[in-house]
Each structure stands twice: as structure tokens, then as C-alpha cells.
């Protein structure tokens, strides 16, 4: 039985001669949550962007289920319909109400009926606590609310896999947990996800597997409890050490832990 959803095989990507991804291979199975961590500039965002074709890889290949999705230029939108992605900068469409943001993909790209999707959208907004904002304009929302809407927008496409690219990096600290709780909720619901984040405690809580990326290569991967308590490579140890001070300070001051 093959339940691999995403298969990345030995991909390379460079910008202006700088190798950003240098032979990355990984698999993500159905229902699995993989968290990709690493120092900034290690290529983790690029990896996500390559997966749904926002960047064109130099070599290697990427498969979604058994379909090769790298190296194609035609019908890329059909691939992206099956891959959800949420960015750091929310990127709601500012000229559309929240509901129109949510409806655009399902009605135009998937040709679903508006009433059906609208009902579904309201249910999902309620689950993330934003039902009353359904017909508001994005500019009236806080960063955390925008990011929750962006998550709903991606989920309404019923993607096979969801890619989250540092979705809390642009948020004020007090809004981080409201967004991460939604992600944890999705993970419990069995959503397959690849997550790039700097929130180590969140990573530990949500991940089935952690991938440590540095210099465009996967240095280490493993179960979160192993990776965070006893990293095998020296580089991962160094990387995690840089977070210990921050997280100790966090635990004292930050009362509203996500999960609460």
C-alpha cells in the first residue's frame, strides 16, 4: 500500500549561481505533518515554493501521488488546485470581502456552486471563530484574523496537502497562538501538511516528523521528541541552542500558550 502524497526527489535550485537547494529528497505520507526547520536562508521557504511551482527547480523531480508535477509549464493551475499554500504576508485579496476571498478559488478554479461553497465556508469560519467577519473587508481584520481567513481559503480548495510558509512570522506575538491553534486543529483532523516555522514549541507540538535543513541540504530528520531533546548532528544542536534562551524567556512571560 502506497500512501505517499508528496515525493521530492533530489531537487536542486539556485539563484544567480547560489545553490539554495542542493539535493533535497523527502516524502510526506497521507495525514503526516512534517515541520521543516533551519536557520534563515537555509532554503526552507524555497523548498515549499518549488513544490507548488512558484519556483522552477533546476533538476530533480517532484511527485504528487504518482503524478510528476515538476518540470511542467502547462496546466500548473491544476496542480496548484491540489496543493494549498499560505504565506507569511496573509495575501488576502484586499478588494474582496472575506467571503469573496474564500469563494474565488472553489467557484472559479473548481467550478463549484456558490451556495454550496458559501455554506461550507461559513462552517469553517465558525470553526476558526470568524463567522461574524464573513462579509467584512480584509483591511478591517487583525493580522491573526487575516491569517486564519487565509488558512480557511486554502482549506476550502480541499487540497491534498497544505504548505505553510512561516505563517506567524509577520504577526504580533499575542496573535500567534490563535493562528497556530487552527493549524493544530487541522493536524488533528488528519490534514497532510508541510510547515516551515520558527516557533519551536509549536513545531514540537504539531509535528509527526521534523526535517532540519541547512545550506540547502537535509542534515537530520526524525521524530520531534528525539530531535528536540537529543539532536544527532552538531549543526542541529547549535541551531537549537540559539533558541533555548529565547524559549526560556518566552515561558516566563508568555502566558497565553497556544493550545489553551
Amino acid at each position: 500500500m502506497n500512501d505517499t502524497i508528496l515525493h521530492v526527489q533530489d531537487i536542486y535550485k539556485s539563484f544567480d549561481g547560489n545553490g539554495v537547494l542542493r539535493g533535497v529528497s523527502m516524502e510526506i505520507r497521507e495525514g503526516e505533518v512534517v515541520v521543516i526547520v533551519g536557520p534563515s536562508g537555509c532554503g526552507k521557504s524555497t523548498l515549499l515554493r518549488c513544490i507548488n511551482g512558484l519556483e522552477v527547480i533546476d533538476s530533480g523531480s517532484i511527485y504528487l501521488r504518482d503524478e510528476k508535477i515538476s518540470g511542467r509549464t502547462k496546466d500548473l493551475h491544476l496542480v496548484r488546485q491540489k496543493i494549498g499554500m499560505v504565506f507569511q504576508s496573509y495575501d488576502l485579496f484586499p478588494h474582496m470581502k472575506v467571503m469573496d476571498n474564500l469563494l474565488l478559488g472553489p467557484t472559479k478554479a473548481l467550478n463549484k456552486s456558490k451556495t454550496e461553497v458559501e455554506k461550507e465556508a461559513l462552517e469553517m469560519l465558525e470553526r476558526v471563530g470568524l463567522k461574524e467577519k464573513a462579509y467584512a473587508l480584509p483591511r478591517t481584520l487583525s493580522g491573526g484574523q487575516k491569517q486564519r481567513v487565509a488558512l480557511v481559503r486554502a482549506m476550502l480548495m480541499r487540497p491534498e496537502i497544505l504548505l505553510l510558509d512561516e505563517i506567524t512570522a509577520a504577526l504580533d506575538p499575542e496573535m500567534v497562538s490563535e493562528v497556530l491553534n487552527v493549524v493544530i486543529d487541522l493536524a488533528r483532523g488528519g490534514m497532510t501538511m508541510a510547515i516551515v516555522t520558527h516557533e519551536m514549541r509549536f513545531a514540537e507540538a504539531v509535528a509527526d516528523r521534523v526535517v532540519f535543513l541547512e545550506d540547502g541540504m537535509i542534515m537530520e530528520e526524525g521524530k520531534p521528541e528525539e530531535f528536540f531533546s537529543a539532536p544527532k548532528t552538531q549543526r542541529a544542536q547549535h541551531f537549537l541552542q540559539s533558541f533555548t534562551y529565547a524559549s526560556k524567556r518566552d515561558k516566563k512571560s508568555d502566558k497565553n500558550n497556544f493550545e489553551d
Partner: peptide, 23 residues
């Protein structure tokens, strides 16, 4: 128009034409 808006449109599976028209 922000480049990220174009990407966001692409990411919800819009074709280039739809992206131009709606986003």
C-alpha cells in the same frame, strides 16, 4: 499590485487568465 498577490491567486489554483481578471 504586489507580486505576492499574484502568487496567492496562483496558489488557489486560478489560471493566469482568472488571476488577471479577478485578482
Amino acid at each position: 499590485v504586489d507580486k505576492t498577490q499574484v502568487e496567492a491567486g496562483a496558489c488557489i489554483g486560478l489560471t493566469m487568465g482568472q488571476n488577471i481578471r479577478y485578482v
